[in-house]
Design a protein around this nucleic acid. Structure first.
Lengths: 342, 342
DNA sequence: TGACCGCGTGAGAGCGCTTCCATATAGTAC
DNA sequence: GTACTATATGGAAGCGCTCTCACGCGGTCA
């Protein structure tokens, strides 16, 4: 190969190159590439050979321009907290989404919109026509973004239930309420009476639903759900919350933490305080991330089907993109995973 | 808003719309958008007002087509193992890269090329002109991809040292050898004499370098490095490796695990075998992921500057894209973080 | 034999943008 | 007043592709 000396960047072959090489028109070459049936077998062969010979790769920008289709979707993550960002829950969402897209020819554009006020930037980006659809994850509060995208007619699927009902908006949630209720009932079933919870950030529906589930289980058991402290879904905030809880209610015998990271923090504080888990205090988490198997003792927790959720979101988005209507919200079941902490 | 009934999709305003609205030519409107100095202040104002009025957003595909610049880069992850994929190390790389890109106007396309033979697909994708440059992470073996990209003249930065020296290829590595040596010396310094290692996958240079560092430290202390078992950088493989190690060398008093996940697995097996850490067996890990602070006991480990690495890779890539030459390989320092396990 | 049909193919318009080149206008120097 | 220059603006080409439309050809039917 003599290309080592190439100082002028050799231009990629275009469709014209292929057409000339195959002795056909550009239109015909295009037909072959796009699998049109109205091409004679000989010509098809000739074009395919030419493509291989010149090493042709279609230019996406040109194709996008005329087709008004980018064959890529955005995964927009609205998580301001860097610790949570690096948490396996989101990593799983990212990986599962990307996995689901393999083989579809659709690319994943990762948009990290951490700041609250970035919805304008994201909306502009999407309206700029760079993606065919949007997956929204880790939403906080009443984010205007889903509404904006819906209004702009952009196919959108949200991970988790938005706080406000938005007609026509498709989302995939997991049964946070039911899962939390399960967890709390498990604690009750083990004879615990003085149960507290470390709730998640109040501006996230997943956290609110888990708190509701906790409250419902206690109420149904005739108890009052008044031992509540909020954390930030991080390990550190779990430690802090547990410390506060112990301070206020030294006699507690059960804790439901709204996620595993906080549960791990709680475990640590509990141990440091001289309490044995589960003998003195039983602990249940939520998420069932990898870490849950590695804590001491291994964490009893609520499994949420993250990968399934991500796959489903992607699937629903692709359906929407292909022109079918929005699709109804979906809520996936959760289940209790019993380990050693409760 | 009466747009609810819109059955014909309202087309986004184009540059022509803006030009007409502002009473100028398309060329002038374009100049304003691209910040050309040769525009009179009044016209500039008029165009900017028009843009705001019609809600214009430039079409990226059209711009890309003529500029031959996509303003996006690919982060290609070559990790076949799903567990490792979801591991915080890679999550950090993804997040840090994406963070570094904020404000540059460059988008991140995540390409998950798990299978060994996908380099062709990725290379074609890149040659299709969909990205301006490529970041490569989690490489295994002697992957042909970097060479292919380099040959195609595509700006590329690799995370970690490739096994074979490729002239002109830019990479950012961390000092795996030095870190491993530090870890092992720490074990030696604590009086340990029968030290084993749980090495990483033999096809990754990071793993090989860590094993080398381990060997070097022992050799310099006049000991032989013959207690070696390989794992897969996962928690489970760490447990397995530790079991094997204990079986072969029941008298060992120190373990260097090539990553924290495996160290956590080792800790668990050690505890199950009735050994106390660090009293009976001291353990040092590598990576300093979040988990290292949550193990029992908290893990002494080697900190590698993942976020710094990702940021630097991104920076170097953007430099390359802007036309400057490749840039030399960089090796970032690692340091020992002392906690309770050694 | 002529009218008709279906199929494979090519010509060419046009997607929305940037940018070269030409032109108009105003300003300066002689 | 003329000649020249600097500056703002518009016309228009063209990036690489898809797709409509028109055309030519061979076959079928009356």
């Amino acid at each position: 190969m003599t290309e080592g000396q190439a100082e002028l960047v050799r231009r990629q072959p275009t469709l014209d190159t292929v057409a000339a090489e195959a002795g056909v028109s550009r239109a015909t070459a295009s037909r072959v590439i796009n699998g049109s049936p109205r091409v004679s077998p000989e010509v098809k062969r000739a074009v395919q050979d030419a493509i291989a010979r010149v090493g042709y790769v279609p230019n996406r920008a040109a194709r996008t321009l005329v087709r008004r289709r980018t064959d890529s979707v955005a995964l927009v993550i609205r998580e301001p907290n860097a610790t949570v960002l690096a948490d396996p829950y989101l990593a799983n969402i990212i990986v599962a989404t990307s996995d689901e897209l393999i083989g579809t020819g659709v690319q994943l554009v990762l948009v990290n919109a951490r700041n609250d006020d970035e919805h304008e930037r994201v909306a502009d980006y999407v309206r700029g026509g760079h993606v065919d659809g949007v997956l929204l994850a880790s939403m906080h509060g009443d984010d205007p973004l889903p509404g904006m995208l819906l209004a702009a007619g952009v196919p959108t699927v949200v991970g988790g239930r938005p706080p406000r009902r938005i007609p026509g908006l498709c989302y995939v949630d997991v049964d946070n309420l039911g899962g939390a209720q399960l967890a709390t009932e498990h604690l009750l079933g083990a004879g615990r009476k003085r149960i507290a919870t470390i709730a998640g950030p109040a501006d996230m529906t997943a956290a609110a639903d888990r708190l509701d589930g906790f409250g419902r289980a206690l109420t149904e058991a005739g108890l009052t759900a008044d031992r509540v402290v909020h954390g930030e879904f991080t390990h550190e905030s779990g430690e802090l919350a547990m410390t506060t809880l112990l301070d206020r209610h030294p006699d507690l015998d059960g804790v439901f933490a709204a996620n595993d990271l906080m549960a791990a923090g709680a475990l640590r504080v509990l141990r440091a305080s001289g309490r044995r888990v589960p003998d003195d205090v039983a602990v249940v988490g939520f998420d069932d991330i990898d870490l849950a198997r590695h804590t001491e003792p291994a964490l009893t927790t609520v499994h949420q089907p993250v990968i399934h959720q991500a796959r489903l979101m992607t699937e629903l988005l692709l359906t929407q993109i292909s022109g079918e209507p929005g699709g109804d919200p979906v809520v996936l079941p959760t289940q209790l995973v019993r380990r050693d902490s409760a």
